[in-house]
């Protein structure tokens, strides 16, 4: 046995993590997770039949963690372009608080853990759908579409739209038309939401080499497509009421807020230069978040209310 006296490494050369738990939490893209929790909850609540509260809660937790895991895998792969863009350069990997390998390991472990937990707690249809969602976001969107086509967030938006379907499958073991309608709302909402932000950050995307619609096809084309998707979204947002799984209160709110969405998209379409153009894009971006929270929030609250009244009555 040899006793090594002369240590050939220097302590400073070793990468010893100084990452805090909050850095790992940031890898999960918490703001996206909140939206996933709300939309998946809407899928669970509107699913046919009855699911035990605890099973519903753990399913929701697994779906949220699965979405967070795909966010961590996205940050691992996109660290190079995140470091270039002002909006993303403070993320844990490009800022050096977490290494790429740590982010990859974290994302993979949480992916497997969330899928298997959902499979064991709910059912394997829901687990398969969650696995597909993670694969779609991390591989199809992040590794392929994002750097290849300006339609990246149109097709990739499907990943963000899946949670209601996964939630419905977890609660009922099946995929219903109701959950497909909720999927369609999020799917049509994603392009105007992201492109409103991309108009403001067009230079960033150009420098990072990401072909987003504004820098790849031009701002005029982006404004037109925002308007088209908004015109498609507004009536689809009313469908939950027309299909009978939301109340007239939801119906009125969805019509009014949908008209508001189209009005703001029209403002983005009309104002094309200077500060008015920027403020129009900012307004639509902020309103789009409010719009989705409003629709799904009302859906969850009134479904929960009906459930409670049913139990009491």
């Amino acid at each position: 046995m040899t006793y090594v006296k002369d240590q050939s490494f220097k302590q400073d050369s070793l990468e010893i993590s100084i990452a805090e738990p909050k850095d790992y939490f940031a890898l999960l893209k918490p703001r996206v997770m909140y939206l996933v929790v709300l939309t998946a909850l809407a899928g669970i609540m509107t699913a046919p039949g009855h699911v035990h509260g605890l099973i519903g809660f753990v399913s929701l937790l697994a779906i949220a963690v699965g979405a967070g895991a795909s966010g961590a895998l996205n940050m691992w792969y996109d660290a190079d372009i995140d470091a270039i863009m002002t909006r993303t350069r403070t993320r844990p990997v490009p800022s050096g608080r977490i290494t790429g390998d740590q982010a990859l390991a974290f994302g993979l472990i949480l992916s497997f853990a969330s899928v298997f937990t959902l499979g064991l707690v709910a059912n394997w249809l829901a687990a398969s759908l969650l696995a597909f969602t993670i694969f779609f976001y991390a591989v199809i969107y992040t590794m392929w579409l994002k750097r290849w086509t300006p339609q990246n967030i149109v097709i990739g938006g499907a990943a963000g739209a899946f949670p209601p379907i996964v939630g419905c499958a977890a609660a009922s073991g099946s995929i219903t038309w109701d959950s497909v309608i909720l999927f369609t709302i999020i799917f049509l909402w994603t392009p105007p939401h992201f492109w409103a932000l991309a108009i403001l950050k067009s230079q960033d995307y150009e420098e990072a080499g990401v072909p987003m619609m504004p820098n790849a096809k031009g701002l005029d084309r982006t404004r037109l497509e925002i308007l088209i998707y908004s015109l498609l979204l507004a009536p689809v947002g009313v469908l939950p009421w027309l299909f009978g799984f939301a109340s007239p209160v939801y119906g009125v709110l969805s019509i009014v807020s949908g008209l508001g969405f189209v009005a703001l998209a029209w403002r983005v379409f009309q104002r094309r230069t200077g500060k008015p153009a920027d403020s129009a894009a900012k307004g639509l971006f902020a309103y789009s978040i409010l719009y989705l929270f409003l629709l799904f929030g009302v859906l969850v609250i009134e479904t929960a209310g009906a459930l409670i009244l049913n139990r009491l009555g």
């Binding site: 010893i16 993590s17 100084i18 805090e20």
Partner: peptide, 12 residues
């Protein structure tokens, strides 16, 4: 700093 972050990670 490294000890503090490791302790916080372990607690989490």
């Amino acid at each position: 700093a490294q000890e503090k972050s490791r302790r916080n990670r372990n607690i989490a």
